[in-house]
C-alpha cells in the first residue's frame, strides 16, 4: 500500500475538520500570549511555527493526574480512558520518545492505562523547519525528521505538505479523503530533502551525549561536579514533568462520601520522599545523590537497558529549569571540562 502523498496547504484545514469528526483533535493553539496543546475549536488558531510546547505530549498518554479506579463499597470500577484522539503538530523528538515510553510501559507487564490511551491516540507530527535555540535532537537521531516510528509525518514544502504514513491505521486516515491528496513527484522528494538539509543547518546546539556518557563511564566526573550541579536544583520537578521520556508517578487515594477514587499523579525521582522506605528512612536524602541519579539514569542506564539515551533533545528542561542545570547545559559543561583535559 502506498504511504506517501502530497497535500496542498489549502486542503489542510478541510482534512483537520474531517478528522475532528472522528475523534477529538488536539493541536497547538495560540492563547493569551502562549501556544499550548488543547482541543481544537477554531482551525485558524492552529499555530505550527511554535517553540517546543510545555509540557510534552506525554500528557496525553501519562496524564498529570489520571483516575485508575473507583470503589463504592464492594464494587470496583476501573477507569480506563478510551477516548480516541488525534494529536496534531507534535515534533519528531516527541514521537521518538513514544518508542521508548512504549517499551517502558508495555514490555513485560503491560500498563493497562497507558495501553488504552496509546491504542486510541494517533500522532500527526511535523518536521521541524526551524529548530529552537534550545533543541539538540540532531545529535541524537531523534529529529528534526524521522525515517520511521511515526504515525503520520508532515513536511512543510512551502505551498504543500509532504505526507508520510507509518502504519496501516494512519494510511486509512489519508485514503478516506484521498481526493485531497496527490501522488508525490520527483520534485516533491527533492524539496523534502532540501527541507531536511536546511533544517539540520539551523541547529544552534550540537551536543554529543555519547561523549558525555564515555566521560562519565571513564570515571572522570568527580562528585564535586555533581555537588555544584545539585546546589542549583530548586527541586521543582519541572525537568521530569516536562520530559517526554520521564515516567515517575505516585499513587494516592481520595475518599469521598460516595466512594473512593485511586488516582496516579506525576511525581519525580528528584524528591527525597520518592524513595522513602518504611520507617522513614530516606536512601537518597542528599540532593546530590538524586541529581546525579537523574543524569546517570538518562545517560548510563537507559542506553544499557534500552539501547538509546533517556533524552531526545527536545530542550524542554532548558526552558523550564530555574537553576539552569538542564541536560544541554550540563552536557556542554562536561564537554568543556573534557576539552580542557581535566
Amino acid at each position: 500500500m502506498r504511504s506517501e502523498w502530497v497535500l496542498p496547504k489549502g486542503h489542510l484545514s478541510y482534512w483537520l475538520r474531517q478528522l475532528r469528526n472522528r475523534a477529538s483533535l488536539i493541536a497547538p493553539l495560540r492563547v493569551d500570549g502562549d501556544i499550548v496543546f488543547k482541543s481544537l475549536e477554531n482551525i485558524h488558531e492552529v499555530s505550527l511555527d511554535n517553540p517546543a510546547l510545555l509540557p510534552s505530549p506525554k500528557e496525553f498518554l501519562l496524564p498529570q493526574q489520571e483516575g485508575m479506579f473507583w470503589t463504592e463499597g464492594e464494587r470496583i470500577r476501573p477507569l480506563l480512558n478510551k477516548e480516541r484522539r488525534f494529536i496534531f503538530g507534535v515534533r519528531s523528538c516527541d514521537v521518538s520518545a513514544l518508542g521508548l515510553l512504549d517499551r517502558f510501559f508495555l514490555e513485560g507487564y503491560g500498563d493497562p492505562f497507558y495501553r488504552e490511551r496509546r491504542r486510541n491516540t494517533i500522532f500527526l507530527s511535523i518536521v521541524c523547519n526551524n529548530p529552537d535555540p534550545t533543541c539538540f535532537c540532531i545529535g541524537l537521531g531523534t529529529g528534526p525528521y524521522l525515517e520511521k516510528g511515526f504515525d503520520i509525518q508532515l513536511t512543510d514544502l512551502g505551498d504543500r505538505y509532504f505526507v508520510q504514513a507509518g502504519n496501516r491505521q494512519s494510511q486509512r486516515l489519508v485514503r478516506q479523503w484521498s481526493f485531497l491528496f496527490t501522488t508525490p513527484r520527483k520534485v516533491d522528494y527533492e524539496d523534502q530533502y532540501e527541507v531536511f538539509l536546511s533544517s539540520k543547518a539551523r541547529f544552534q546546539k550540537r551536543i554529543s551525549l555519547e561523549s558525555v556518557r564515555e566521560y562519565i563511564l571513564a570515571g572522570k566526573v568527580r562528585d564535586s561536579f555533581w555537588e555544584s550541579v545539585s546546589e542549583r536544583c530548586f527541586e521543582c520537578g519541572g525537568c521530569v514533568y516536562e520530559c517526554p521520556l520521564c515516567t515517575c508517578f505516585t499513587v494516592t487515594d481520595r475518599s469521598y462520601s460516595f466512594g473512593t477514587e485511586r488516582v496516579r499523579l506525576w511525581d519525580t525521582c528528584l524528591f527525597k520522599g520518592f524513595t522513602r522506605m518504611a520507617g522513614g528512612v530516606l536512601p537518597n536524602e542528599k540532593r546530590v545523590l538524586r541529581t546525579k541519579r537523574w543524569y546517570y539514569h538518562k545517560l548510563v542506564h537507559y542506553p544499557d537497558v534500552l539501547g538509546s539515551f533517556g533524552c531526545v533533545g527536545c530542550g524542554r528542561c532548558t526552558v523550564t529549569c530555574p537553576g539552569r542545570i538542564d541536560m544541554a547545559t550540563i552536557a556542554i559543561k562536561l564537554r568543556d571540562l573534557q576539552d580542557n583535559g581535566r
Partner: peptide, 8 residues
Amino acid sequence: VGVSPSRS
C-alpha cells in the same frame, strides 16, 4: 487534571 507554566 493538571498545570503547566506559561512561557511568555
